[in-house]
């Protein structure tokens, strides 16, 4: 989008312009370096041997690149008494995140469709309460949730964690879809009703095909939330069902003796990789989806 209101009022000499440009780029470069520094340190450290870390400089490049730390982090590092690395927990996180993202997105889409296009008595109150649910701090629901999971017989299991994340994600996914569907003229629903289509038919044939940008938003948001979640993961899991965030914490905190920084760094990068990947793949849809509702005529 171009800023139409911009109108140059002063004319500057080409030299001044060049100097200002130069300063601007220098500043931008400095900021970029500043933000990239931690990632740089993590990557270089993970590629160094322990000896080199002890003797060398924090920000220097590795003299000798070794992937030992990555191998250990993936399949050998100890989380408490087990020494299987991140691998089983990474798998747990995938088993939790993928179904939870899909289920909460589908239900959120249906909820949003109902609240935006099939107004029923009390629809606004229903939506307000759902929104309220978005802003309840995690800590508040821990105990009641533990009781509910116990009653359902799924405490400490992966389905239990999926359940928790679906419930907690619904507020946001409903909000996303509701705001997106509100901008779709209600005449579309009316036309489809006259054409003879029912509730699910209209959703499936007309609304869902329009929803790609907002589905991407919902998936990115939910995946990031669920993948990065620590509190629910640590509260509602037991040995064998812990997600990757909990495992990372255990690896970093439960080492005895020498602290293996290179392994810690590699493990941290492994834990962060999927969310990074999701942003890289679908990031451009994310911005488009977030602004779509507000700009579309």
């Amino acid at each position: 989008m171009t800023d139409m209101s911009y109108a140059p009022t002063r004319t500057q000499s080409p030299t001044t312009k060049l100097v200002l440009r130069f300063i601007l780029y220098i500043l931008l470069g400095v900021f970029a370096l500043f933000y990239l520094m931690p990632l740089f340190v993590m990557i270089t450290t993970s590629l160094k041997s322990l000896d080199e870390i002890r003797t060398g400089d924090l920000v220097s490049l590795p003299r000798e690149v070794t992937f030992d730390a990555w191998r250990t982090a993936w399949s050998g590092a100890c989380t408490g008494i087990q020494c299987e690395g991140m691998r089983p927990y990474f798998l747990n996180s995938l088993l939790i995140a993928i179904p939870a993202v899909l289920i909460s997105t589908i239900i959120g889409a249906l909820n949003g469709y109902v609240v935006a296009q099939w107004k029923f008595k009390g629809a606004n109150i229903f939506f307000a309460l759902l929104l309220f649910g978005c802003f309840i701090p995690f800590q508040v629901v821990l105990l009641p949730m533990a009781i509910v999971l116990g009653k359902l017989g799924i405490s400490g299991t992966i389905p239990g964690l999926i359940f928790v994340h679906v419930i907690y994600g619904l507020g946001f996914t409903t909000l996303f879809f509701r705001n997106y569907y509100v901008s779709i003229p209600s005449e579309l629903t009316k036309a489809a009703k006259v054409d003879g289509a029912g509730f699910f038919r209209i959703f499936w044939s007309i609304f869902l095909p329009l929803s790609l940008p907002i589905i991407v938003v919902s998936v990115i948001w939910q995946f990031t939330q669920i993948w990065n979640d620590f509190l629910f993961g640590v509260s509602f899991s037991q040995a064998g069902t812990q997600p990757v965030t909990v495992a990372l914490n255990n690896i970093v905190n439960s080492t005895t003796g020498v602290k293996e920084y290179n392994v810690d760094m590699a493990a941290a990068i492994i834990a962060a990789l999927p969310t990074l990947l999701v942003y890289v793949v679908a990031g451009k849809y994310f911005i488009r989806g977030l602004t779509a509702g507000s700009v579309k005529g």
Partner: peptide, 16 residues
């Protein structure tokens, strides 16, 4: 509406 045997044209056309 679907059982009334009617067809309707809308102001915004409401094309899918």
């Amino acid at each position: 509406p679907k059982d009334r045997d009617i067809a309707m044209v809308f102001q915004s056309y409401a094309l899918y």
